[in-house]
């Protein structure tokens, strides 16, 4: 039993790493999603083109391929990355590409009258986005963003393959040391499930909170 406590401690250490990578990845993803999502709606074709290229590039391959490329190829091209940096950047940019489409879709779903009203009130394009369009669009983005962050959480398991000691990595260590397979893997499966349930609960709360006072979102 005491021996198991040590192993559980190891897995919990991994859980902390998994949470850290998830949070940092989500931040990168959020920034990338807004830049690329707004970029796709830009008036300038070059910006639109670049945003599209980024989105299709990162959606066209899996996190696994991107992570290995970032970790093994980029250093040879003169961009040395630590496993943590490679993991956070690859995960963030990958999920960010999916998020960009969400941002674009949500902004486009805002009815035309809202834009017309902004023109009528003589708001600048920045004011229009900041005060009228985005506050409404963000609420519509939230449910899908929730799913995206769960995908990111699940994606973090892949960083164990570039020797980052996340939860999956620690489970493998425990397996190698004890020869027991069911206990470590069942433990981390439950922990991952706990984390993803937490994310969806938090997103639901946030959705309720943000949609307060908005028209037609039915709360």
């Amino acid at each position: 039993m005491e021996q198991w406590q040590g192993y559980i401690g190891l897995i919990l250490q991994g859980a902390v790493v998994t949470i850290e990578i998830t949070i940092m990845g989500c931040i990168v993803a959020l920034i990338a999603a807004f830049i690329a999502g707004l970029g796709r709606l830009s008036r300038f074709w070059l910006v639109r083109w670049m945003a599209t290229a980024y989105i299709e590039f990162f959606r066209g391959t899996s996190i696994f391929v991107q992570l290995f490329w970032a970790y093994f190829v980029l250093p040879l091209l003169g961009v040395p990355l630590s496993p943590l940096q490679a993991g956070v950047i690859a995960l963030g940019l990958n999920i960010g590409a999916y998020g960009a489409e969400v941002v674009r879709g949500a902004i486009k779903s805002i009815p035309r009258e809202q834009y017309e009203a902004c023109t009528a009130l003589n708001l600048t394009r920045f004011q229009e986005m900041r005060h009228v369009i985005l506050p409404q669009a963000v609420v519509r983005m939230l449910p899908t963003f929730g799913n995206n962050s769960i995908e990111l959480l699940k994606g973090t398991a892949v960083v164990s393959l570039i020797s980052l000691s996340d939860m999956t990595f620690q489970a493998q260590v425990v397996r190698a040391q004890t020869g027991s397979t069911a206990v470590p893997f069942l433990t981390i499966l439950l922990l991952y499930f706990l984390f993803s349930s937490t994310i969806s609960t938090v997103i639901k709360r946030l959705e309720r909170h943000l949609s307060r006072g908005l028209d037609g979102t039915g709360t």
Binding site: I150, L153, K154, G155, T156, A157, V158, S160, L161, T168, A171, Q172, R175, T181, A182, F185, L186, I188, L189, Y192, F193, S196, S197
Partner: peptide, 18 residues
């Protein structure tokens, strides 16, 4: 829900090792 909320990689390990 359980399958969807956990990583494919861990599920593969589970099938392969357990």
């Amino acid at each position: 829900e359980l399958i969807r909320g956990t990583p494919l990689l861990v599920q593969l390990y589970f099938l392969f090792y357990v």
